[in-house]
Amino acid sequence: NKFNKEMRNAYWEIALLPNLNNQQKRAFIRSLYDDPSQSANLLAEAKKLNDAQA
């Protein structure tokens, strides 16, 4: 399933972002599970926040 693969990839990328705190990571990951079709958008948002907090 395409969404499962995208979701799994996004999950690990988000989990490993160095500048997000655990609460932020959990919120993004919860959103991934709520709507796997938004994986790419959620990952992009997480990366933006990660960069902003660098």
Rank of each mutant, 00 (worst) to 15 (best):
D35S: 10
M7S: 04
D34R: 11
A54F: 11
E6L: 06
I29W: 11
A15N: 13
F3H: 14
L49S: 04
S37Q: 08
R30K: 09
Q53C: 02
E45R: 14
A27K: 07
K25C: 01
S37W: 10
I29S: 03
K47I: 12
A52H: 12
L17A: 06
A54H: 13
Y11F: 06
W12V: 12
L20T: 00
N21G: 09
L43V: 15
E45F: 06
R30G: 07
D34Y: 12
N21M: 08
D34E: 11
I14K: 00
Y33Q: 04
A40N: 10
P36A: 08
D51N: 13
S39W: 09
N21S: 12
K48R: 13
M7P: 02
N50D: 10
N50V: 01
E45Y: 10
R26E: 08
N1Y: 01
P36V: 08
A46H: 00
Y33M: 07
P18T: 10
L32N: 00
R30Y: 12
N9D: 14
F3R: 01
N1A: 04
L20D: 00
K48S: 09
N1L: 06
L43S: 06
L49A: 06
N50I: 01
Q23L: 09
D51V: 13
L20F: 01
L43R: 09
E13C: 05
L42P: 01
K48E: 13
N9E: 11
N1M: 03
A40G: 07
N50L: 01
A15V: 11
N21Q: 12
Y33T: 05
A46M: 01
D51C: 04
A44I: 12
N21F: 05
N1S: 03
R26P: 01
R26K: 07
L16F: 12
N41F: 09
N1Q: 08
K47P: 00
Q23S: 13
A10Q: 03
S39F: 10
E6C: 03
A52K: 10
S31L: 11
L42I: 12
D35A: 05
E45H: 08
A54C: 03
A54S: 11
D35I: 06
K25F: 05
K48P: 00
I14F: 03
D35V: 06
A46L: 02
A15W: 13
D35T: 11
N41E: 08
N41C: 03
L17D: 01
L42T: 10
A15I: 15
P18G: 07
A10D: 04
A15T: 15
N21E: 11
W12R: 15
Q53D: 06
K5H: 07
S37E: 05
D51I: 13
A10R: 05
Q38D: 12
A40E: 09
S39Q: 08
Y11A: 12
N19W: 05
L43P: 01
A40F: 07
R26Y: 08
K47W: 09
L49N: 03
D34C: 04
R8N: 08
P18I: 05
L42R: 08
A46D: 00
A52D: 10
E6Q: 07
K5W: 06
A44D: 11
M7T: 09
N19M: 13
R8Q: 14
A44T: 12
L17H: 06
R8V: 07
R30A: 08
N19H: 11
D51M: 12
A27T: 09
Y11E: 15
K48C: 02
Q38H: 12
A15F: 15
N22Y: 14
A27W: 15
F3L: 12
E6Y: 04
E45S: 10
N21P: 04
K48F: 09
K47V: 06
A10Y: 10
E45Q: 11
D34K: 07
A54W: 12
K5E: 15
E6P: 06
D51W: 12
L42E: 01
D35L: 05
K25M: 03
A46N: 00
I29A: 07
S31Q: 12
I29M: 05
Y33A: 04
N22K: 13
Q23R: 08
N4W: 10
R8D: 06
N22D: 14
Q23E: 15
Q38T: 07
E13V: 03
A54V: 15
F28Y: 08
Y33R: 04
L42D: 01
R26N: 13
A27Q: 09
E6V: 05
S37P: 06
L49P: 00
F3Q: 07
S37N: 03
L20M: 03
K25G: 00
A52S: 07
N22W: 03
E13Y: 12
I14P: 00
A27G: 07
L20S: 00
E45I: 15
Y11C: 05
F3W: 08
